[in-house]
Design a protein around this nucleic acid. Structure first.
Lengths: 221, 221
DNA sequence: GCAATAGTGTCTATTAGACAATATGGG
DNA sequence: CCCATATTGTCTAATAGACACTATTGC
């Protein structure tokens, strides 16, 4: 590059979370191009002003292209910026997070040219490119902060779920075990706002069947 | 502009809050230039990659230039973006908030070429330029969310303050009255972490003097 | 009956809110 | 003493955490 940089690079990244059993997982892809080719990174891409209406739309386009998934929930964490965070120069990367229901992991297979993996969100277990380790940490922190007040774990579950599954989802996000009785007490306290019992539908299993629940009519995704 | 826009405009805005008596106020400036000249707006300015290390540094530079103030606390709210939010074209404006101690309002007089005003943060009372009304609303919401967990109101007060003043600051941010007894009980519960009593110093007044407090040694700005 | 999970009940320490009571300075 | 403010105390209803108990299925 010759001369001073006039405009920063503008991009988006997405931390796409899902559930794998009892653990919260996040999608990473192996970088095909320089810089940091071969390194694992959160999916992302440059803003295309002619295509994207805003940064959230840009992040949705990234998800469509990389994993063919259009999330019901996409929220901004914050912008990461600076002269040194990317060797290509001054850059602004706005981080979003999205939630993929656990029964749709297979649908989000990705295009075949790029290796992807689902890693433990709390301990990715490998170095991440650029400042993506900090991005992930802040996305997880944001998720944890929102578990309490919003019905956020619902986005991680199938359309029908049991209360035990819902509790497992909350525990996966926070990493802390919850008391079954207290958990259901809290749910009952806001009944009619967030949940509705699915009358007469029960899960099959080797033990006592659990009642299925689904998102209530008034619940807004 | 001829042809499609290759790069978005990148800028920062700052919601600078302070206390005026019992009300939370925010700084607005009258726009001198088009677009929307004459409209009131949150202070802001274009990123200068050759000057600014990151977006937070850019926001600090904006505050230095407009009100000669370098805040101890500057936190990002989120990025506002899109093709239509600014008539000049595709733009990304990252919003920060900062807190000005109430005894330093006069120091932050601003340069004389631009009209500034401090308006009620909850009801600015006049239309704001661009999407700044929504920016302000989200900055206030972020402040309110942080009152509980952080010692954020300390940034709004002078170095020495009474517990009543601290309570008034919290009430100004949330807009809700607090119970005096419960408020002090919460403070005592975290004593040694956030506050220290200034032994022997008392406020002067027409009534019973109040004990002065100051930020504790371990408190980190 | 037994194992395993679903779902409910109970006890208690803690807490938040409301409000009362006391303390202290200036007139 | 009176007023206004600071500071502390008390009462009570609600809550959260821990844990025990009951219910229901397949084998």
């Amino acid at each position: 590059m010759a001369g001073p940089q006039l405009y920063p690079f503008v991009a988006t990244n997405v931390a796409l979370f899902t559930l794998d059993g009892d653990s919260l997982r996040v999608l990473v892809g192996k970088r095909a191009n320089e810089p940091q080719a071969g390194r694992w990174a959160l999916p992302g891409g440059a803003l295309k002003p002619e295509l994207d209406d805003d940064l959230a739309a840009s992040a949705r386009r990234v998800l469509r292209e990389k994993v063919r998934f259009d999330p019901s929930l996409l929220e901004q964490v914050r912008a990461f910026s600076g002269r040194d965070r990317d060797p290509r120069g001054w850059s602004v990367a706005t981080l979003f997070y999205a939630l993929l229901p656990q029964d749709r992991i297979d649908a989000a297979a990705g295009n075949k040219t790029e290796a992807i993996d689902w890693v433990d969100a709390a301990r990715p277990g490998r170095p991440l490119a650029f400042d993506h380790a900090q991005m992930l940490a802040e996305a997880v922190a944001r998720l944890r902060a929102k578990v309490e007040h919003d019905a956020l774990p619902l986005h991680l579950l199938p359309d029908r779920f049991t209360l035990t599954e819902l509790q497992r989802a909350c525990e996966a996000i926070t990493g802390e075990p919850l008391d079954k009785s207290a958990f259901r007490r809290r749910l009952k306290a806001r009944e009619g706002r967030d949940f509705v019992e699915a009358p007469g539908e029960f899960a099959q299993g080797a033990h006592r069947p659990a009642q299925y629940y689904k998102r209530s009519r008034g619940f807004r995704f």
